[in-house]
């Protein structure tokens, strides 16, 4: 196999594995956040509106970590700035 094919294969591998790894941490984090929010609502049902808002905000922040990884994976797959440099055309 020549370099270009190797490059493509490794890019795909890196993107797939990278996303897979990147979802582990935020997944755990979102689980913890949700469980705490549920506990909070169970203890104080009248505060559910406020807890919901904060929870959604926190989940969005956590989620953005995965999205960074997603963006990087997409850059690796479709918009690698080094692509033309390595492959040549």
């Amino acid at each position: 196999m020549d370099g270009a094919v190797w490059f493509f294969a490794l890019s795909v591998l890196a993107a797939g594995v990278g996303i897979g790894i990147a979802t582990i941490g935020p997944g755990i984090g979102q689980g913890i956040a949700t469980s705490k929010a549920v506990e909070g609502v169970a203890r104080q049902p009248e505060a559910s509106g406020k807890i919901m808002t904060i929870l959604i905000l926190g989940l969005a922040f956590i989620e953005s970590l995965v999205l960074y990884a997603l963006v990087i994976a997409l850059i690796i797959l479709f918009g690698n700035p080094a692509l033309t440099h390595i492959v040549g055309h």
Binding site: A60, E63, S64, L67, Y68, L70, V71, L74
Partner: peptide
């Protein structure tokens, strides 16, 4: 940066 990426990546994915 995070503001733009969050919205864009969610929609795009």
């Amino acid at each position: 940066f995070s503001l733009s990426i969050r919205l864009f990546a969610n929609m795009m994915s």
